[in-house]
Structure formats: C-alpha cells, structure tokens
Design a protein around this nucleic acid. Structure first.
Lengths: 206, 206
DNA sequence: TGATTGACAAATCCGGTGGATATGTAAAGC
DNA sequence: GCTTTACATATCCACCGGATTTGTCAATCA
C-alpha cells in the first residue's frame, strides 16, 4: 500500500504547504509526516527548494490531467466546459498551491515554483482547453478555438479571485459564454474524443 | 483657475497616493503640495482616513463616469465595448487607486476605501455596463444583458491582472466575446443613447 | 472668518539586536 | 538505505528606543 518514498514525501509536502505555506514549511515536519528522518529528505531532494519544486510540478501536472479527463468524459463541448469549470473551482477552493498557481496571488514565495516546463500554469491550462476544443470541433477556426480557451480560463480564474456566488453558478455563467462563442454545434453530442491510453493514474515526474 | 480648496487637496492626495500608497502618504505633504498648512487639511477632512476616503470616492465616480461617456459616444454596442475596455486598461495601467479598486490586489491598505456607497467598484462597474446595454438593446433579455456585463468586466479585470499583450489586443479579445454574446444586432449602428445633461466634464487627473 | 503657526501627547514607523529556530552538510552506526 | 548526532551558517522573531507622524488645541495673523 505504501507508495515510493519520493511520493510519500511529496504527499506530506503538499499537505503541509497547503496549510502552512512555503515560509513556515519545515523540512523536519515533512520528514516526520512521512515517518522518515530529516536527513532522508535531504538525501532525496537535496534541499527544501527542490522538494517544493518537485511537489508543485507533480501537483500542477495532476491538475491539468484532471481538467483534461473531465472534458474528455463529457458528451458535448458545452458539458465539457461545465465539468472543467466545476473541477477547477472545487479544487482551487481547498488547494492553496493550485489557487496561487492560477491567480498569482497569495503566493507566499510559492510563485517561482509554479511553472510546467518553464511556462506558467495559466498558459498551460489554456493549451489543454484549446487542444480539447480542436479535438472536438475540428471545423472551428483555430483563432476561435484559442479565443474560447483563453476566455474560459480567464473567467474561471476571475471567479476564483472574486467569487460572486456558488461554484455551480459560476460554472453556469462560464458555460453560457462558452456556448455562445462555440455556436449551436457545441450542444450537439459529437462523439467524445477517443480516450487516449492513459491507464496510469496521473503521477509522474522527474 | 484655482479650484476649490477641497478639490485642490483631493488632487494632491490622488497624486501622492498614486506614487506612495496609503501608508507612506503624509498629511504634511498633501498640505504642502496644495500650498496650505497641515492644519487646514485637518479642518477640511478631519483626519487622514477621511481625506483618502473622499479622494477614492471622487476617483471611482470619475472613473465610472468615464466608462459611461465612452460607451455613449460609440455608435455601435460593439464599438462601445471596445472603447470602454481600452479606457479601463489605459487608465488602470497608470492609476494605482483604480487598479487596486478593481483587482483588490496591491492594495496597500487602500481597499477599505474603495467602495461606492458600500458596494465594491467591481459591482458598480457591472451595473454601469448593464444599464448601457439595456439602453442600447432594449429587446435583449435582462438575463443576457447582465451576463454580458459581468463577463466583460471580469475579462477586463483579468487582463488587468495578467496581461497577455498590448491593451489594444486585449480590447479586441474582449470585444469579440461581447459581440458573440450580443449577437448580430450588436454591430448595427443603433442611434447612440441621447447624452444626458452632464454639464460638468468628468474631471481628469492622474 | 478662514488660514497659519507652534506646541504637544499619543500612535506609529523603523532599524538594530540577541536568542531561538531551521537549513544544509558531514560523519559514524545499524 | 536509513538513522542519529553534531555542527556551522542562515533565517526568523519578539523586543526596544528613537524618530517620525498623527490628531488636537490655543494663540495669532490678514
């Protein structure tokens, strides 16, 4: 049942960072939470910075994978939008790292870590959405697909920063905008994209 | 050519707050900038807090008036959107108070002041836009008008927080979304709303 | 009368300081 | 491979005293 030591440490780090932030995170606590000695953490990651870096990398990857999965499961593009929005809002609400990754705020020294291959999560999220749209609606002009993606992401982040009601309602709002941008084709249940072989639960990182 | 003492003081306060923020603003400097004694400032406003409060109130009012005016001058709803977006982006860029009013960030203790009759500027801006839309397109369902308004405001604030290019481009992006939400009617030059009697020009300052 | 000056207590800011805590490294032991 | 102990260095943090600023008052000037 026990994952690899690395994963254990990243789990503990994620949990502690979520409640304490980067500044107050102590390597000793990570070690204790994972049931190992402090030295082991240093053996594995070298220093505190690399530890948090690795954690952030894994978390953002999982996050993007999560978005992708929700969208792929939906039957219409509009439903995909709805599902993705709710996923983001629900997760960001209780996930300090994701929240600051997207908003750039409250980033208690956390921001420097929050990039995927050097690109900010914000951009990465847009890409994921854009690709999904292109997959679902190949006839939609590239330009429009990109507009839908950036608009959706920006609106979601906006609702994250300044909520105006329950997540459900925010999702409905964003979804309606997306629907208007996509046009009537978006409510027709096109065959959902063939699931690519992703049998492994999203966890990988180097 | 000299405005009233009150206005002079508010001008000086706006300028100093823009460069120093609330914390480092000194009443003595406001007095000096306006060419009066420190005591005069206290006679007029009572304390530093009220002074800044009054300044913020005037500034946000001018700001909202500015939006309204740009929209009224445009010939089509879509052009109205474009003009309004550019106005906001240009002004917020070099106006610390407006920026933190909209974004809620970088608010060096400034936030508590930034409400209009108790309601955040964010909401007020939505209202201004919503009213304008209703005036231009009376046949558009209330619900849709509100959606357009909140979407536009959210997108603009998003571009304010995390710009992705020149203001011109952001404006184009937002405008395209608005156009899609409004439908084809929005590009037809309906007669612009009759200018209400606004004898006093919105005071510019920065 | 409306603004200025000087004076003043109270509140707030600011740089320094010393002890405590955490990081990062090393070596020895199981 | 992991733990324990030890240790030098770096960072945090609560406290402190002086300086600055606020907010108020009374006396004064034009």
């Amino acid at each position: 049942m026990k994952a690899s030591l690395r994963e254990e440490l990243l789990d503990a780090t994620a949990e502690l960072v979520a409640t304490l932030g980067f500044r107050k995170l102590r390597v000793a606590d990570v070690a204790e939470a994972a049931g190992v000695s402090r030295q082991t953490v240093y053996n594995e990651f070298g220093n505190k910075e690399s530890l948090v870096q690795a954690m952030a990398l894994r978390m953002t990857a999982d996050f993007l994978t999560g978005i992708s999965a929700r969208m792929d499961q939906a039957s219409t593009p509009v439903e995909a939008a709805s599902a993705a929005v709710r996923f983001v809002l629900d997760h960001a609400a209780d996930n300090r790292v994701i929240a600051s990754a997207l908003t750039g705020s409250d980033a208690e020294d956390l921001l420097p870590f929050l990039t995927t291959r050097g690109r900010p999560v914000f951009e990465a999220a847009i890409d994921v959405v854009r690709r999904h749209i292109h997959q679902r609606l190949p006839d939609l002009p590239e330009q429009r697909a990109r507009l839908v993606a950036v608009t959706a992401v920006r609106l979601v982040v906006s609702h994250l920063l300044t909520p105006s009601g329950p997540a459900q309602q925010a999702a409905a709002e964003v979804t309606e905008v997306v629907a208007a941008l996509l046009g009537p084709a978006a409510t027709r249940p096109a065959p959902p994209a063939p699931l690519p072989e992703h049998p492994h639960p999203p966890k990988e990182q180097g």
